[in-house]
Design a protein around this nucleic acid. Sequence first.
DNA 1: TCTCTTCTTGGACGAGTGGTCAAGAAATGA
DNA 2: TCATTTCTTGACCACTCGTCCAAGAAGAGA
Lengths: 203, 203
Amino acid sequence: MARTGRPRSFDDRQVIEAAKEVFWQRGYTRTSMRELKNELGVLPGSLHGAFGDKHTFFLRALERYAEDAREAATALRVDGPALSRVRQFLTEALDAARSAPGRGCMLGNTAAEVLPEDEEAGRIIRRAFGELEAALEEALINARRAGEVRADVDCGAYARLLLALLQGLHVIARVERDPRRLDDAIDAALAAITASGADARPL
Amino acid sequence: MARTGRPRSFDDRQVIEAAKEVFWQRGYTRTSMRELKNELGVLPGSLHGAFGDKHTFFLRALERYAEDAREAATALRVDGPALSRVRQFLTEALDAARSAPGRGCMLGNTAAEVLPEDEEAGRIIRRAFGELEAALEEALINARRAGEVRADVDCGAYARLLLALLQGLHVIARVERDPRRLDDAIDAALAAITASGADARPL
DNA sequence: TCTCTTCTTGGACGAGTGGTCAAGAAATGA
DNA sequence: TCATTTCTTGACCACTCGTCCAAGAAGAGA
């Protein structure tokens, strides 16, 4: 069957990308379809025709965000001093949230807003968190093997700690006026497991 | 002027307490006045007469939650081995959230939901976070003085880390199926600063 | 050019929202 | 007992929400 009929007047990927930004900033419940219409320049009828209802549309945007996070985590896997990769990953993740007021992490925001009712969103978030945790653990293990991290550190538990720390910093960033205090917390987390003798970051 | 007229048919404190539970569980936006009416047994007219509009009512409930958190933090100030007090505080705070599905910390939930738009809520949250951080820092300093914590630990930065960790654990708890993994993260955070030779908790 | 198919447009719908208000009920003080 | 004051009751208002749909527009194929 040949595809025929009037073509889409917009690019699906661009629309999802724009919707991601709006949902990221305002959350699921507080974002109305009318708001999306204005921001995206697509009328509600077309939006429903192309992406289904609000919830499925939101899941697409959330999935897109999760892919971004997954991609950012690949930076943990490159060669080089593993501990500074971890620091850089955490700092950059925080900066992404600080680039606009009140965004935080869309995964954490969504978890706080709609879980545990929304099981589909839960699956996306659980998977993304799991991958981030695994990437962090792998980096920590490499760092320990290289002597950057003390030998007695439980890398699995500490990776979970770092993921939770990142999520918590996103929350605290909403009320914290001095951004440097957040970086200090990251430094403290890494300093606490740095092997004595390894190149510690100057305070 | 003597107070006269028909008396309240409900106790203000009890209503605020019940409203705190509902807002804690469901958040600000997703909780409707009708839901509160059903849950609290107070009709909308009376609710407005007694507490004003939804937003001021919510702030009362949030303030109430902040007082609870403040009270819980006083447990950090009692005498005894400071580090185990910290561990107990973090664990109990997490348990309070795990006692019901999808509650988390009302301060963090609210921060993620309505900040930075809602400045009044922001003030309440900022103050509560500040007090928790200060109480944690004080406990860490005591622990360091007692030799439980390594001398090179920056207690201020690490207190911030622990507060962020707690907030992050609340977020992650919404998707984590094995609760013990969260306790492991707390253990890892404290093990990382425990002075060698001090009584470390068995793994 | 004409038909077929798909997308766009924008108004409309029912449900649910926060908030209001007039009437009735219950207490006080004289 | 009665006037006064305050609280309760539940219907009601204007508004916003997500969603739907009939009519028109725009491309592809014959």
